[in-house]
Amino acid sequence: MRIVIVDDDMLVSSALKTILEVNEDVQVEGMGSDGKEAIALYERYRPDVLLMDIRMKDMSGLDASREILKAYPQAKILLLTTFSDDEYIVKALKYGVKGYLLKQDYNSILPALQAVQTGQTVFGTEIISKLPGLLQEKKVYDWEAHEISEKELQVISLVAEGMSNREIAAELYLSEGTVRNYISNILEKLELRDRTQLAVYYLNAVR
């Protein structure tokens, strides 16, 4: 089984590579640190399974999954994350990823990869317990209809929390100038005038 690992923590990537390659049937073809590298590595290696983190600095695993699955609908992606955020789970299902595991489930990773390789969909125990409620909830607001990316949505949520540009920059590992550009682009996409309108818009959307 040919695997590509993408995680912005190289210690995690290296540990996963070591753990997985104990099994002689597993070969890690390449490793990356953000969503853009994930896309490039998938195009280069066409692995049996792409094992990828969600929250990464430049491009999230969810955004990368969306782009990869648009171009390669047959792609098998297993998301591995420390977050069981409801919105992430719903998006993962919507995009068509084959699995969603929490990083602490280390013992489940190899069996999950093997299951995904055979075409099964795999979710960790904690995720499975959430699915019935999530599937019955009202439809998640469609930010994609406004071409709002995962990173832009993170910026919006932090604006709604009342954070300054400097605080948002520190939280997301960006420069203040980049945050200003994000907010300017977001306001234009949503046809809003200022940060206050943006915060109100977000809070109404997520209620």
Results as ranks from 00 to 15, higher is better:
residue 169 A to E: 02
residue 187 L to H: 07
residue 159 V to H: 05
residue 43 E to T: 14
residue 140 V to I: 14
residue 190 L to P: 02
residue 127 I to G: 04
residue 15 A to R: 08
residue 59 M to W: 02
residue 151 K to G: 00
residue 179 V to P: 02
residue 206 V to E: 11
residue 195 R to Y: 11
residue 157 S to W: 01
residue 203 L to P: 01
residue 196 T to W: 04
residue 49 V to H: 01
residue 150 E to F: 12
residue 130 K to Y: 06
residue 97 V to N: 03
residue 83 F to W: 08
residue 51 L to V: 15
residue 58 D to I: 06
residue 133 G to T: 14
residue 10 M to P: 00
residue 84 S to M: 13
residue 31 M to I: 13
residue 120 Q to R: 14
residue 133 G to Y: 09
residue 183 I to H: 02
residue 152 E to C: 04
residue 207 R to V: 07
residue 165 N to T: 12
residue 179 V to E: 03
residue 2 R to F: 00
residue 69 L to N: 04
residue 98 K to N: 12
residue 85 D to L: 09
residue 17 K to E: 12
residue 100 Y to A: 11
residue 165 N to I: 12
residue 194 D to T: 08
residue 4 V to E: 08
residue 85 D to T: 10
residue 36 K to W: 03
residue 125 T to G: 04
residue 108 S to Q: 14
residue 89 I to N: 11
residue 198 L to E: 14
residue 55 R to P: 00
residue 58 D to F: 01
residue 93 L to T: 07
residue 104 Q to T: 13
residue 96 G to A: 06
residue 49 V to N: 03
residue 121 T to R: 13
residue 57 K to V: 08
residue 109 I to R: 10
residue 14 S to H: 05
residue 134 L to Y: 07
residue 74 Q to W: 06
residue 35 G to A: 09
residue 93 L to K: 05
residue 74 Q to M: 11
residue 193 R to V: 13
residue 41 L to C: 09
residue 180 R to K: 15
residue 150 E to D: 14
residue 198 L to T: 13
residue 85 D to V: 10
residue 53 D to K: 05
residue 71 A to E: 15
residue 99 G to W: 05
residue 134 L to R: 10
residue 91 K to A: 10
residue 142 D to I: 05
residue 201 Y to W: 15
residue 21 E to F: 01
residue 104 Q to N: 15
residue 120 Q to V: 09
residue 130 K to T: 06
residue 124 G to V: 13
residue 32 G to P: 05
residue 7 D to L: 03
residue 185 N to F: 00
residue 194 D to A: 08
residue 4 V to S: 10
residue 193 R to A: 14
residue 10 M to C: 01
residue 104 Q to C: 06
residue 10 M to W: 01
residue 94 K to A: 14
residue 189 K to G: 11
residue 157 S to D: 00
residue 36 K to V: 04
residue 57 K to N: 01
residue 34 D to F: 01
residue 152 E to S: 02
residue 189 K to C: 11
residue 179 V to W: 01
residue 100 Y to C: 11
residue 69 L to G: 04
residue 133 G to M: 12
residue 51 L to F: 11
residue 169 A to Q: 03
residue 98 K to Q: 12
residue 29 E to D: 09
residue 22 V to R: 14
residue 89 I to K: 14
residue 178 T to E: 11
residue 122 V to G: 04
residue 131 L to V: 10
residue 168 I to Y: 06
residue 132 P to H: 09
residue 26 V to W: 02
residue 53 D to R: 08
residue 70 K to T: 12
residue 104 Q to H: 15
residue 59 M to S: 04
residue 204 N to L: 06
residue 18 T to H: 01
